[in-house]
Nucleic acid binder design. Structure first.
Lengths: 358, 358
DNA sequence: CTGAAAGCGCTTACAG
DNA sequence: CTGAAAGCGCTTACAG
């Protein structure tokens, strides 16, 4: 269903301003755009006329005439509800400030079909750069745009069937480090909770998880690896199921932010003694003493924005593939607090049982 | 600093398609836009030509010709980092789907000057509707646009010097209800933490707080009302200061989401017995058993989006001023758990001391 | 069912 | 320092 948009009329144009100021359109444009080569009294007359008529330049006209140079960049993300995506957008927004670039945001809910639709719309609007967290796997439909010089930057997940810049996380190093920490502290039954294996990040992190186990001399137990967890609610129940097993894991690692929140909410209620490490930090994570592999989505967004700005200015060249580091933050006392059945939360000690180590 | 944007050339135009298909531009347009009155073999030829040339219509040209009917709406918010704003944006985004409207988002960091800049840019881009969480107090600069028929919708804070639609919270009912609850349970020293008194929402909620105290027969103690708290960190330290006083409050009410998070983080560490109610829910709020006055920013965004869609279709009329309800969610056991110095967190009981009632 | 001409509101490329 | 003409890529308003 398309909205019927009635036309609006009656706007002042540059011509109107020129007429009132008694100059040509070109001269009016010169004054308004702050070019030199205008006598100051002429400039004044134009300014006065523009103010009187409440002239507001039409960027569509300007950008049409100037060909593809629009001042808008497109950002395609999964969903503004998810803090990962909204902070990514905040980072992009931040990078774009001071550069007179506008930000068009569209969300795909991670549906490949919707990605194509919204990307299409952005291309028709002739965005000057395109950033996207891809959900489709085939991006050959972007090939033509790339050849026309459109800067394209993939975020969080790499391009597959098209050449483009990308800004990704290092999904290996700190996940492995976290698993090694847990193994060093004696954990053998370590569970991993991940999103769909079709997602690049989920697979990367799971691979790192399995490798780390192997390195630690632990045979990966596939029954402890749960995937296709899309939201906090299912993460919470998956965690509850794990804990209810005859031989529950003694440690859990959650491989994205929604899964972390769901798992933590179950652990808080059901088992304060199970060790835990989450991927992506969240509100109160520090207060609750929860160990995390942190990444800053704003940093990723900002970085991508910087690349976009450079590409816009200098043109596309050899594609860059940036891997941003994560950070393993160990929180909690390092001692399992459950030696007492009634751990205190007073003082600066962590919330009971939620130390990532034990 | 403005980015220098080099032009990009070489795009296929409708003319190119028409030429290849051996028809006029008008006929090519008819086929591509799915109008009737085109012979099917003509249509096919045009489609083939368009596909061959990878034709992508130029919306700037179309919208320029069609006057002010662009397919973009502008949303001006404080900052995508803040979940309140990003969820607001998610709601707007949601309302706009299926309507072929694009979303341009700009953030102001609540700075009036920046608001003017970004709104200006959106107006030059001829957005078909403008939604904003205002930070400026004077919006007479929008008066001209309103008269030209631009739908303008204020979110979260009402318009002052311009006539426009607005979607606000009912900032009174549930704040008062929360205070009454606390008073009923015997609390006399109730503290309120709020953002800057210049902010409409802060003032509204503080007024409701004071009125409720008076209604409950409690003389408002201004030393318990802390304002100008802008972020979680200062909320955390303000809370710590309160608790360190000789006669600390026995209950605290935090009047927005960032303040809630900061206050809760201090309470979790320092005083699990102080009663607490937060405005705006947050991750783990339920798990931690924290009472809140909840509002759903998505709902506000979605509602505003609906109004925008209607205004776009039907034109602006008598301005609407919608007041959305909040919801007081009492969580926690209702009993002060601190009778035991070592409250347990096992089972489904709330985290220690964080029941909003006591 | 199809097309030629004009125009949306600017900027470009000249000419003076 | 200033201006007249043409054009960006579409759609409008006609005419056939």
């Amino acid at each position: 269903m398309t909205a019927e948009i009635p036309p609006r009329q009656g706007r002042t144009t540059l011509q109107d301003v020129a007429r009132l100021a008694g100059v040509s359109a070109k001269t009016a444009a010169r004054a308004i755009n702050g070019e030199s080569n205008v006598r100051s009294d002429t400039r004044e007359r134009v300014f006065t006329a523009a103010a009187t008529l409440k002239f507001r330049p039409n960027r569509l006209a300007r950008e049409l005439r100037q060909s593809a140079r629009t001042g808008a960049v497109g950002l395609v993300i999964g969903n503004l509800d998810n803090p990962f995506y909204s902070q990514l957008a905040a980072g992009v927004d931040h990078a774009l400030r001071e550069h007179d670039l506008e930000l068009i945001i569209a969300s795909t809910d991670d549906e490949p079909e919707r990605e194509k639709v919204v990307v299409q719309a952005m291309l028709e609007r002739r965005v000057t750069a395109l950033m996207l967290v891809p959900s489709a796997t085939d991006h050959s439909y972007l090939e033509g745009e790339r050849q026309l010089g459109l800067p394209i930057i993939f975020l969080d997940r790499p391009p597959v069937t098209v050449v483009a810049d990308s800004v990704l996380w290092d999904n290996h190093t700190d996940v492995r480090k976290a698993v090694h920490e847990l193994a060093t502290r004696g954990h053998r039954r370590i569970s991993a909770l991940a999103d769909s294996p079709e997602l690049f990040t989920a697979t990367e992190r799971l691979t790192a998880f399995r490798e780390a186990l192997t390195e630690a001399g632990i045979a990966p137990d596939e029954t402890l690896i749960l995937t296709s967890i899309h939201d906090a609610t299912s993460a919470a129940s998956a965690t509850a199921d794990l804990l209810a097993r005859d031989d529950p894991p003694t440690a859990i690692i959650a491989l994205n932010n929604r899964i972390s929140i769901g798992a933590v909410s179950t652990l808080l209620r059901d088992d304060p003694t199970c060790a835990f490490v989450g991927f992506d930090d969240f509100d109160l994570g520090e207060t609750l003493g929860i160990s995390v592999v942190t990444n800053d989505p704003r940093e990723m967004g900002n970085y991508a924005g910087q690349i976009a700005l450079r590409r816009i200015r200098e043109g596309t060249g050899t594609p860059e593939r940036i891997s941003l580091p994560t950070r393993l933050v160990q929180r909690g006392s390092g001692e399992r607090p459950a030696s007492s059945p009634h751990p205190s939360t007073r003082g600066s000690r962590p919330a009971p049982g939620l130390s990532g180590s034990d």
